[in-house]
C-alpha cells in the first residue's frame, strides 16, 4: 500500500506540514517495497488561488491509497480527493513523518 504524507522534508524524521494545499513536500511511502518517493511542492507559494485542487491533482498522480496530513484539506481539495478515492487521516500536523506513520498504524489518527 502507498501512504502519502504532507511534510516539510523528505526523510522519516522530517516534520509533518499541517497544511494540505500549501504543503512543502508530498512524501509517499510504499510499505510493500519499503520505498519513498517525494514531490517538492514549494512552488505552490506562487499560486494565489487553487492550491488545494492543484496539490490534490499532484497527489492523484502519485497514486497513494491513504493520505496522512494535519488540518485536513479544504472544500475543493476534498472534492478531488474523494473522486480520487484517497482515504484521508488528519491530526498529524505536529508530528514527524515516523510518528505520524506509527500513529496511523496504531489507529490513533482521525479519519477525515
Amino acid at each position: 500500500m502507498k501512504i502519502a504524507f504532507t511534510t516539510k522534508g523528505i526523510e522519516w524524521n522530517s516534520d509533518m506540514d499541517p497544511r494540505f494545499g500549501r504543503t512543502e513536500y508530498i512524501l509517499v511511502y510504499d510499505d510493500e517495497k519499503e520505498e519513498f518517493t517525494s514531490f517538492d511542492n514549494r512552488d505552490i507559494e506562487n499560486e494565489a488561488h487553487g492550491a488545494g485542487p492543484k496539490t490534490s491533482q499532484q497527489l492523484f498522480e502519485m497514486s497513494p491509497q491513504v493520505l496522512i496530513t494535519g488540518n485536513g484539506p479544504g472544500g475543493n481539495a476534498a472534492t478531488v480527493l474523494e473522486k480520487a478515492g484517497i482515504k484521508i487521516f488528519i491530526g498529524a500536523g505536529q508530528m514527524t513523518v515516523n510518528e505520524a506513520y506509527q500513529a496511523y498504524k496504531n489507529n490513533n489518527l482521525k479519519e477525515f
Binding site: 488561488h49 487553487g50 485542487p53 492523484f60 475543493n76 478531488v80 473522486k83
Partner: peptide
C-alpha cells in the same frame, strides 16, 4: 484545459475533468 488554467479551476483526474466554479 488543465495546463492553461492559471487558477486551477479545471483539474484533470484520470479520465475525468473537474471544474471548480468558485475558482
Amino acid at each position: 484545459c488543465q495546463k492553461n488554467c492559471n487558477f486551477h479551476a479545471v483539474i484533470q483526474l484520470g479520465s475525468q475533468i473537474l471544474v471548480f466554479p468558485e475558482l
